[in-house]
Simulated assay, not measured.
Amino acid sequence: MFRVLIAVGLLAWTGLSRTATGADATDAQGEVDSARRDALLSQAQDCELRNDYADAERLLRKAAKFPADERVSAEILVRRGDCFMKRGKEHRAYELYKKAIEQYSLYIPFEGVVERLRAVAERFASGEASWFGVKERDMAIEIYELIIAKASSAKQAPADTLRLAQLQTEGDQKLEAVQTYRDLMKRYPKAPEVPEARLDLARLLLDLAKGGDGDGALARQAQHELDLYLQAFPDHSRRAEAETWEAVANERQANALYRLGEFYLRPSHSSVGAARRYLHDVVREYPSAMSADLAKITLARLDQKGIQEPEEAGQPQAAPVAAGVGHAAVVPPPIRPPDKDLTPEKAAPPRPAKTLQAADQVEKWLLPLEDLSEDTGEKAK
């Protein structure tokens, strides 16, 4: 029995020794890896000091292969991104900064990385990131969208949103820019960027109106934004520019009314009453517009010729136009089909009466004589 106990003890001691040896080996390997990683990081730092960013990035990439905690991994990503930026490789730098801010936001100098992303975006926007100076606004827009998504409550968020809207305006995303401007004013109503955003939005709406404005909704929205700007920011540095754009908006709306007046003077859509109303609206609401002078000339011509609206019985009256326009529009009277020509020469000849055929001469259709109240010989008797 005693021998059995000794054997069991020896086996247990051997197992513990092996376990301790394995743990020691793992710890030793970890220390070796850590030492190698630190050596590579130190060598990379020396290369960075010598402005040898290609070798520095290569050493950092090797160091990233060794196990490390989140703080060290985040540091390596940011430093690699810096090396690519120094070498003018903005696409690679953006990939690394993006990975760092998405995976290690708690372990990086957040504001510093966001500032690096802004720098990358501006290089894309200016064309510095391209060999031939081609502006890559889509890349810049993507980066600013990432910044706003990750730092929407940061102090620079209103400025970042304004810059995003400006890039969208410069590119082919004008409708998206309209929404971005409105989001900025809704989320940050007291931000110092609001006056710029409101004025830029008005300019963008007027620019969109040039491509076709239908009932003038875009011009009216631009006018609304300009009115708010002039009322809320009377001392803003761009007030003179706002007044100029307000004159443009007034001219656009006056011209739209004047063209409606001309439309109803055409022979195919003649409605002098509607034309006069639109022309008078131009003169009354936009007296300083060029279209007002044209409207006065047209009204004087109508008065000189004595052209009045024909008074026809049953002619439809003016109906209000689509909501929001604020002017009456006349519905042209329906086209009445021409009356039939009933002159004797063109009138259809009367149809001949149908003659009674032999087959129709049946006695059952004849009434008895007594029913005709005629005296017969028998009744006389």
Rank of each mutant, 00 (worst) to 15 (best):
E285S: 05
A157V: 11
A380S: 11
A328F: 07
S153I: 02
K186A: 03
V114R: 05
A157M: 08
M185F: 02
V362D: 14
Q179I: 07
K186R: 10
V113P: 09
P332N: 12
R123Q: 09
P189V: 00
V4M: 07
M139W: 10
P320E: 06
R37P: 09
R238K: 02
W131D: 13
A177I: 00
A300H: 05
W13L: 14
H236R: 11
E312M: 10
E136R: 14
D183L: 01
K98M: 10
E193N: 05
M290T: 15
R239L: 06
L96G: 08
A295E: 05
L204F: 03
L369S: 08
S130F: 02
S271E: 04
T161V: 04
S288V: 12
H327N: 08
A129W: 00
A197Q: 02
D138C: 01
F66P: 00
D213W: 15
A219E: 08
A54G: 07
A44E: 00
Q221D: 14
V362E: 09
L228F: 15
D160W: 11
A300K: 12
R118S: 13
G216A: 11
E225I: 06
S291Y: 10
A54M: 06
D371F: 08
V4D: 12
A140S: 09
Q166E: 01
A295N: 09
L117S: 07
D341V: 11
G112R: 09
A209P: 03
Q29I: 05
L257K: 11
L106R: 14
G216M: 09
A322D: 10
D360I: 06
E70D: 14
